[in-house]
């Protein structure tokens, strides 16, 4: 039996933009199982990023209940949420978001340092994941010495190095050319299969959607339909 990893119940998210109230998510309910490879799609402004932010405990809903890895996170303190993100959730961002002053090795090492892991164990883990993403030889390079595809690989390595239960990728291929984007998706798929961790990525690119085993279509903050790839 697969384990439920995300449970969203009647989520509303409203923003205030000046005097105007904007509804980013409206009555969204979701159940996601461990090991799934899911795409959240929809046009710009449909609420994809807001949904990922709420799942990733970076933002809180205006209404509704959020359960991540069987934890009711709504009333969690900021420090507790930080710990949860560090331990269980990996993030891959559209513009890579690597720490510019750290090398490839140090960027990937950072979440393990936060976990308080011993140096030797960290080194083994970082070397292993860098080999998996094909960047072992670039471990001393700074982000500005890497190509876009290489930077996103570092981001993937950083997201996976803690063996998270969940990886969230917000438009991971949007800043990459087609060929590199495909390579990144292949890598994510491989990691999903090998590490058995849940991947949720947002996109509005139909080519990218094809990779997902399950697709949630969002429009105006509501889930319009849920699809399954055969």
């Amino acid at each position: 039996m697969t384990k439920q990893i995300i449970n969203l119940k009647n989520i509303d998210k409203e923003y205030k933009l000046g005097q105007t109230k904007i509804t980013a998510l409206k009555d969204v309910s979701l159940d996601i199982q461990a090991g799934e490879f899911i795409s959240v799609c929809g046009p710009s402004g449909s609420g994809k990023t807001t949904l990922l932010n709420i799942i990733g405990c970076l933002d809180t809903p205006t209404k509704g209940n959020v359960k991540i890895i069987e934890k009711d996170v709504i009333n969690y303190s900021d420090a507790k949420l930080s710990e949860l993100r560090n331990k269980y959730i990996g993030f891959i961002f559209q513009s890579f978001n690597l720490i510019p002053v750290l090398s490839t090795f140090e960027n990937v090492d950072y979440p393990l340092v936060l976990l308080g892991m011993k140096k030797k164990q960290r080194q083994e883990k970082v070397h292993a994941i860098l080999s998996e993403v094909g960047l072992y030889d670039h471990k001393k390079h700074r982000p500005d010495e890497l190509s876009g595809g290489q930077r996103q690989r570092v981001a993937i390595a950083r997201a996976l190095v803690t063996n998270p239960k969940l990886v969230l990728a917000d438009e991971p291929t949007a800043n990459l050319d087609h060929k590199t984007g495909v390579a990144i998706l292949d890598l994510m798929q491989k990691m999903n299969e090998e590490h058995n961790c849940t991947f949720i990525f947002s996109t509005h690119d139909p080519e990218v959607m094809k990779y997902a085993k399950k697709i949630y279509h969002l429009r105006d903050g509501e889930i319009q339909k849920q699809g399954k790839r055969s």
Partner: peptide, 16 residues
């Protein structure tokens, strides 16, 4: 700003 946001997102506490 982006870097601080990233550090926070990947688990750095405010105290960090």
């Amino acid at each position: 700003v982006k870097e601080i946001g990233t550090l926070r997102a990947i688990g750095t506490k405010k105290s960090g």
